[in-house]
């Protein structure tokens, strides 16, 4: 049943798959970021309560969703890498981690910039902001553990173990923080999402979520390609790829000289 997946365990096939998928993801990302931002900033109606400040939702919510989505996909990749010993899954973990960290950082910054006009403070120890902050720590842990190893083979496996441990801990951390928050803060904070969201705001939000997802996909594919190349640098196909690349560049230089 899963046999069709087997060829992708080979680095070269996976690299080629990245190359085929990349343009689609990139086009969707660019188009939906432009549509989503213009729609969200210029055309969506203002909220009756929060006026125009609510427009931050169009980047805050997508980045928060993607920060957690990226962590779960990283954990799944880590699980696959450890159980089936697939090198490509290990490389995917390394490719996802910085992108997920960037998403978390965006969610934190936009959360703070939204909190200032709404709550009157840049930082409030709100359950969701606090969980995002801890999520950022977990991402940074995976990244710095990978960078600390000299031997990238053990580095990959060590980061996979850490990503899995973090994934098991993450729900516990999330619920404990939520529980701690209700215990200490009570109902001083007004919740944003009370009730259903109107269609005129819902659709631009969906477009933005799609945009962020496609963006994450694009950048992860790019990073995965780099990791595959670095790890496989002694293989003949990489050598072939590079000689092709240099030939192309030389040709380009030659064309320019001719002009």
């Amino acid at each position: 049943m899963w046999k069709w997946l087997h060829p992708y365990a080979k680095a070269q096939t996976a690299y080629r798959l990245c190359n085929t998928l990349l343009p689609y993801f990139a086009v969707v990302a660019v188009a939906s970021i432009i549509i989503g931002w213009v729609w969200g900033l210029g055309f969506a109606p203002a909220d009756y309560q929060q006026k125009d400040s609510y427009r931050i939702i169009f980047i805050h919510v997508p980045s928060a969703i993607l920060s957690m989505g990226a962590y779960s996909s990283m954990a799944i990749a880590a699980f696959i890498a450890l159980v089936w010993q697939l090198r490509n899954a290990e490389l995917a973990v390394i490719a996802i981690a910085p992108v997920g960290a960037a998403m978390t950082l965006i969610a934190l910054i936009t959360g703070a910039a939204w909190g200032k006009p709404m709550w009157g403070a840049w930082w409030v120890w709100d359950a969701r902001l606090t969980s995002e902050l801890i999520l950022l720590f977990l991402y940074l842990g995976v990244i710095s553990l990978y960078n600390a190893f000299e031997d990238k083979g053990s580095a990959g496996r060590a980061s996979c173990i850490l990503a899995l441990v973090g994934a098991i801990n993450l729900p516990i951390i999330h619920f404990s923080v939520e529980w701690w928050n209700t215990l200490h803060q009570g109902a001083t904070i007004t919740k944003f999402d009370g009730g259903a969201i109107d269609a005129s705001m819902f659709w631009p939000l969906m477009v933005n979520i799609l945009a962020f997802a496609a963006f994450v996909g694009t950048v992860v594919l790019m990073r995965l390609k780099n990791e595959i190349l670095l790890r496989e640098k002694h293989r003949p196909w990489v050598k072939g790829l590079i000689t092709n690349q240099t030939q192309l560049e030389n040709q380009n230089v030659g064309d320019k000289n001719a002009v």
């Binding site: 960037a102 910039a113 006009p117």
Partner: peptide, 23 residues
């Protein structure tokens, strides 16, 4: 942005910067 310009543009600006940076 109805008086909220600083916050809205701050978050959109930093978001664009981070996205561009990682790209």
């Amino acid at each position: 942005m109805g008086g909220y310009g600083f916050y809205v543009w701050l978050s959109f600006g930093s978001c664009a910067l981070i996205l561009l940076g990682i790209f």
